[in-house]
Amino acid sequence: MKSKSLVSIDQCSKEDILRILENAAKFEANPNRKLLEGKVAATLFFEPSTRTRLSFETAINRLDGRVIGFTDASTTSSSKGETLKDTILMVSNYADLIIMRHHLEGAARYASEVTNIPVINAGDGANQHPSQTLLDLYSIQKTQGTLDNLTITLVGDLKYGRTVHSLIVGMSHFNPTFNFVAPNELKMPDEQKHFCDKHGIRYHEYTEFDESIIDETDILYMTRVQRERFTDMEEYERVKNVYILKNDMLKNSKDNLKILHPLPRVNEIAYDVDDNPKAYYFQQARNGVFTREAIICDVLNIPVN
């Protein structure tokens, strides 16, 4: 029998999501628990990502587990032509759990098919990064007291931004209303809009980022607008400063508004926003550790009390 893995947010039912978030809250109340005592977790970062790796390794350490792994595939056998399958099977002999990031899309799904130990996808190219989505959901639930009936405004690169696509899937169980704010070149793809239509999710599209949209928003989710995403440089020059959030844009916003960002940010949130109590992106990253503790216990079927 195949073990339980977390490869994509699509595989999570509403019950799965709520269970993981409930456990994440327990870890926030008491992060240090000896639930992984005697267990070894492998963090295989075929593609480096310091932020994600530190968050997972902190989670493992707080659970009293041990970590093995690598952070750069050029120092491992995969650079000598070893297949992913061989690397995964080798590591499966040593570890109880694999957490992996890979630049190729579908790598984590394939790994979960060849091994008998659980695999957690910590990002496969532009495809999936489910622990990011779950920590976003945890941050939303924690700051709003609920996931239901919220108005969520997504700003910036909605075309290539996998975090916003996954957030739509994750929120689809909770009757959200979305505002999509993006330049024409980076607007939300039809596939995601069809998904919303199919699931009865309301959405509105805007190219202008103005205060009237912010004022009706519960969660403002900012993303980076990257120069390399544009084919038309004139368009980039025209829009690069349009999707920047400044503190004075928040003066009439709702009291419960929180601003999220998957980080790292470049300039899409002005520094004067950081001191606004509605800025939540640094706490959001902190929530990642609790969410990942909950995910690790979930795939290993370890109960959390």
Binding site: S8, T83, E105, Y110, N127
Partner: peptide, 25 residues
Amino acid sequence: NEPMLTRFRVIDKEHGTIRCEYCER
């Protein structure tokens, strides 16, 4: 990039649209 079989799910039989089970394209 790996010696393995591809696998696609047929998501629209009428239009013949398929989706890769790995990269989800």
